[in-house]
Amino acid sequence: MDIVAAFSTYGSCVEREAELREGVQGAVKDLEKTSYAISTTLEKIHNTQGIQNIDAICTECHQELTKVPALYQALQEKVPPGEFYRYHHNFRGTTHRLVAATCLITYLEENRLPMHEEVAKSLGLCTHRDQGFHLDLEDYLQGTLSISHELSRLAINSVTAGDYSRPFQIRQFLRDLHAAYSLLFPKNELRKKFDELKYSLKKTEEVVYNLSLRGLKPQEMETSG
């Protein structure tokens, strides 16, 4: 009799958890949809017409981004307090994508990397675990590193579109990013992303080299490079 009781408690636990998980996954799905919409919009910057209209694309992305805090709020309601990391893996990938999108937009608009607090705020999250639903530091770093690949692509595509000054800016930015990350001794997954950054930097440097070699370096940048 006791044995049956033991199993039935476990059974009801499993059932409850499955229910919770379903709720979380539903909320994540909505978030995912928005994040894919933003990535799709951002993909336009690689088009020849897109490179000339970066501001318009950024504005479009901002509109989508304003929906995000409410979606995170909905997700927060599904996750029981104190079990953030239990469901973390369900929305990690999406968070990375959103962080990357936010960083890329800020870079394109203001030519700088947004801070951890800033990104968290724009996504409607806080930065510390004790404040509630937060943006994990590692997620932030992962997200920031993923923009390197997009930027090296943008460097190549802007040359195709005839914009020769952008690769120089991108190289400078990636260099700074690389220098900053070198201080961190990244490990595990971050390490992999960091290697990607190195590779992107190398590619961008090649672009810059090819442009300089052919005398295509823009005049006003002659001194800074």
Binding site: I156, N157, V159, T160, R214
Partner: peptide, 16 residues
Amino acid sequence: EEACYSLQLRKSEVPA
């Protein structure tokens, strides 16, 4: 993308 990029570079060589 790479091909278009190098094409653009080569193009710039020709006038020179």
